[in-house]
C-alpha cells in the first residue's frame, strides 16, 4: 500500500530486499548475504585523529593511471595508491554502481582530496603513504575473509597506521 509522500524523509533503501526482488523478477537465484550475529571487536582510539596516521580503503574499483584495473568477476586483488597522487590520475571501474559522478570527481567514492584538506587543516594528523583500493563486489565471503582481508590488514599494519577509514560503494 502506497504511503503518502510528503516532504518528509523515507527510510533508508533496503538493498537486501530490493536485491531479492530484482533477482526473483529476473529469474536469478537468491543471494545469501553475510549476517554477523556476533558483535564486532571495538578497539579504542589511542590518540586524537588530529595526531593519528589515517589509512583509507575504498571498494569502488579505483585504480591509478599506469595500473591494471580490476576485472568484474570476483576480483580479490587490491591496488596501492600513493597518498600524494594527483586525484586527476585516479579512475573508477565497477559493475554495480553508476560511475558518472565518481568519474567526474573521485572524492565521491575515494575522498582523497577531502582528507588531504583535513590534514592541512590539522583535523587529521597524516595520511598513510599508501591508500588502498579494491573491488568490493565479491560474491564469495570466504574469499574476502581468506584472500583480500588478510592482505589489506597486513599492509595496514606494516604501514603503521593508527586508524583506517573504509569507504564501500
Amino acid at each position: 500500500m502506497a504511503a503518502v509522500k510528503a516532504a518528509g524523509r523515507e527510510p533508508p533503501v533496503n538493498y537486501v530486499d530490493r536485491t531479492r526482488e530484482q533477482y526473483a523478477s529476473l529469474g536469478y537465484g537468491e543471494y545469501r548475504w553475510a549476517h554477523e550475529d556476533d558483535p564486532p571487536a571495538l578497539v579504542p582510539l589511542t590518540k586524537p585523529l588530529a595526531e593519528s596516521r589515517l589509512g583509507l580503503i575504498g571498494s569502488g574499483g579505483i585504480y591509478a593511471v599506469g595500473q591494471t584495473p580490476f576485472t568484474f568477476r570476483d576480483d580479490t586483488t587490491y591496488r596501492a595508491i600513493r597518498s600524494d597522487i594527483d586525484s586527476s590520475q585516479l579512475r573508477a571501474t565497477h559493475f554495480a554502481y553508476d560511475l558518472t559522478d565518481a568519474r567526474a570527481d573521485i572524492n565521491c567514492v575515494f575522498p582523497i582530496d577531502t582528507l588531504r584538506g583535513l590534514v592541512e587543516a590539522g583535523a587529521v594528523g597524516a595520511l598513510a603513504p599508501s591508500l588502498y583500493a579494491c573491488m568490493g563486489g565479491i560474491y564469495s565471503q570466504r574469499r574476502v575473509r581468506e584472500e583480500l582481508g588478510p592482505q589489506l590488514v597486513a599492509r595496514c599494519l606494516s604501514d603503521g597506521v593508527d586508524v583506517v577509514l573504509l569507504v564501500p560503494v
Binding site: Y15, W33, A34, E36, P40, A41, L42, V43, P44, L45, G55, I57, S59, G60, A96, C134, M135, G136, G137, I138, Y139, Q141, V144, R145, L148, G149, P150, L152, V153, C156, L157, V161, D162, V163, V164, L165, L166, V167, P168, V169
Partner: peptide
C-alpha cells in the same frame, strides 16, 4: 556487496587492533 566486503574487512582490521570507521550508503 561492496558494503558487505568492507564490513568483513573492517572487522578483521579491528581484530588486528586497528580502529576502523566504515562510511555507508
Amino acid at each position: 556487496m561492496c558494503h558487505q566486503t568492507v564490513g568483513l574487512i573492517a572487522r578483521q582490521l579491528e581484530e588486528a587492533d586497528v580502529p576502523t570507521l566504515s562510511m555507508t550508503s
